[in-house]
């Protein structure tokens, strides 16, 4: 008899690890500007949205943000708080859009809405706590780049979902573990 009681927990932990791995991969990709980020680390959240229980999705989110804080050492600074706020708002928005949109919405739209929400929060925080009112000029750039990266991550997610055997396996395993725990 396979032990399935820990499956949910292990899958959650692994998706968190995948976030950390992808942000390490992203660190290796050269960037045109130091402040731009692609946000590859959000890919597992976008994928998890489709099959994870909300509790587990929130856990993956926390694992990602706290794990990044520990790896980069920024856990005890404003960088962590900004990242937490952006991710929470993004995941909340994506969940809403995904739930309400049903079959009329794809991962591109979901990803885009999350990126949009997150970049709005980031601009608000940057203007309030870092740069001051005059930094409003950065808003169009920041939101614009957020939209571009949101689109890219959304397209990546669609491709990964349609091609990945691993993801299908994980989804199957996760749903079995949910039934077992009933």
């Amino acid at each position: 008899m396979p032990v399935r009681s820990d499956d949910r927990r292990e899958i959650t932990a692994f998706l968190g690890a995948l976030c950390l791995f992808l942000s390490a991969v992203e660190y290796l990709i050269p960037k045109p500007l130091p402040f731009l980020r692609l946000g590859l680390a959000n890919l597992p959240l976008l994928l998890g949205l489709r099959f994870l229980k909300p509790v587990d999705l929130i856990l993956v989110l926390l694992l990602k943000v706290i794990g990044q804080g520990l790896v980069n050492g920024t856990l005890a600074s404003y960088v962590f708080l900004f990242s937490l706020a952006g991710s929470v708002v993004s995941v909340f928005t994506m969940s809403m859009v995904y739930r309400l949109g049903g079959r009329h919405v794809g991962l591109v739209g979901v990803s885009l809405s999350g990126a949009l929400a997150s970049s709005l929060v980031q601009v608000a925080l940057a203007v309030t706590f870092v740069f001051g009112e005059t930094a409003r000029v950065i808003a169009p750039f920041s939101i614009g780049s957020g939209i571009v990266t949101g689109l890219i991550i959304g397209v990546f997610a669609e491709r990964f979902v349609s091609s990945s055997g691993w993801l299908k396996g994980i989804e199957r395993r996760y749903s079995i573990s949910l039934e077992d725990s009933k």
């Binding site: 927990r9 856990l59 794990g67 920024t74 005890a76």
Partner: peptide, 22 residues
């Protein structure tokens, strides 16, 4: 902050698993 910093409780344990997989 060191990656070895252990957080308490169930979440700390889960984070340990995440770092293992990482």
């Amino acid at each position: 902050v060191r990656p070895e910093l252990e957080l308490p409780g169930r979440f700390g344990g889960l984070l340990g698993r995440t770092f293992y997989y990482f």
